[in-house]
Simulated assay, not measured.
Amino acid sequence: MELKEIYSNAREKMKGYCRVCPECNGIACAGEVPGMGGAGTGASFKSNVEELKKVKLVLRTIHNCKNPDSSFELFGEKLDMPIISAPITGSSFNMGGALSEKEYVDAVMEGSLEAGTVAMTGDTADPSMYITGIEGIKKVNGKGIPIIKPRENSKIIEKIRLAEEINPMAVGVDIDGAGLVTMALKGQPVGPKTVDELKELVKSTKLPFIFKGIMTVEEAEIAVEVGAKAIVVSNHGGRILDHTQGVAKVLPQIADKVKGKITILADGGIRSGIDVFKMLALGADAVLIGRPVIIGAYGGYSKGVETVLTNMKNELIKAMILTGCKDISSIDKTKIVIE
């Protein structure tokens, strides 16, 4: 399946929800939430993309890195690439509903696995969507990760218990969802967490725990302190708070403090394998991909997702060849400059 065909199909199926722009930069869809845009003026979404543009690769071709190894290990699972499908829910109200929630989850789970990686699933005000995600992970023998909204701890722990029944790779909470008013309006309140509440969550399960939505050094250090195994440096795709910094801006500061102490994932504005390379050079261990995976699912179901992710992996490998990186651990700040 060709990318051109995938994008054409997605543009038709998502009409009114996503324009499938030649450059997915948050300009045309600013303020379209629900939908695919960023909150308010869309500045946070735009910042994710613009900050990555400031990072330039250093071209090197006199070396022996002819067949780079793009593999990455996450919680004991070897993946073909340091690229993971992000937790996204709400096919009906965010993407137009041409795919049901079940169809979307199945497409992403299966397509990610076929591409040699895994996917995360999400949580919304509709409790059935979390269950759909859990069922999708079960179908791929637990090779997935459910992410839960920052509800009351007792409610989160209930959802962790449901996850434990299917033995996923890990479990997590997207703590940056704390300000989602729509959750409260539908009787599913969310909010910030204290350090003690975070400790309670981590201790409630033997599964590796992830906190998604870390944007400061201080909160990254707290995640290490409470025993989390991974963080996702993310501003929720620019969808929860207007005028936040771009992920690529804060990532190096966070990596300087906690790299090696915790797995660092980065999420925001990543549109190509080149962007993946940039995030790794800035300090991430791996990345999450959101909007491009949605387009893959809507444009070609599981085959579309597989094609989008495989294309990113191939772009990453090409960048590794042309910068002299034999493996993922070789990608560091010496391979980039920031303008």
Rank of each mutant, 00 (worst) to 15 (best):
F75M: 13
V224I: 06
P127F: 13
E50N: 11
E315N: 11
D275N: 12
L74W: 07
S71Y: 11
L316T: 00
T310N: 15
E152S: 12
E306T: 14
G268S: 07
V58N: 02
G187P: 00
Y130C: 03
V233I: 08
F72I: 02
T117G: 01
G116A: 09
N67M: 11
S302A: 05
A39Y: 07
G177E: 06
V190S: 05
A281Q: 01
K186C: 02
G133H: 03
I83N: 03
R291I: 04
G227M: 05
E221I: 10
E165K: 15
G40I: 03
D285M: 14
P87I: 11
A107R: 09
K53H: 13
G299Q: 05
A255R: 07
G37S: 02
T132V: 15
E32A: 10
L57D: 10
R151V: 10
E51K: 14
C24T: 04
A107P: 11
K199Y: 11
K46L: 07
I6G: 05
S92H: 14
I295M: 01
L265W: 08
C29E: 09
M95W: 08
L59K: 12
V287H: 12
E315A: 00
T41R: 15
I88W: 00
A115C: 12
V20G: 03
K206I: 00
V217E: 00
A115H: 04
N141C: 07
G76R: 09
R161Y: 08
A319E: 14
L322E: 06
L309H: 08
A230K: 02
S91P: 08
G260A: 11
E197T: 08
S100M: 14
V33L: 13
K229V: 03
A220G: 11
S272M: 12
L201Q: 01
N141G: 11
F211E: 06
V232S: 02
K78E: 13
C18R: 04
R11H: 06
T323L: 04
M95K: 01
I338K: 15
E225Q: 05
K313G: 02
N9P: 03
A319C: 15
S272K: 06
K66H: 03
I83S: 04
D275L: 12
K13F: 09
A220E: 02
V33T: 04
G116R: 05
I274W: 00
G26P: 07
G40L: 08
L185W: 14
P127M: 12
E114R: 15
E103K: 02
K139V: 01
R19C: 08
K333P: 06
V181I: 15
V20W: 01
G144R: 06
A178L: 04
G324M: 06
G268D: 04
A286M: 00
T121V: 15
F72D: 05
N167Q: 10
I175T: 08
L241N: 08
L207T: 00
I222S: 01
T307G: 04
I231G: 00
I289R: 12
L79A: 09
R271C: 12
E103W: 01
I62L: 15
L309N: 09
V305A: 07
S234N: 07
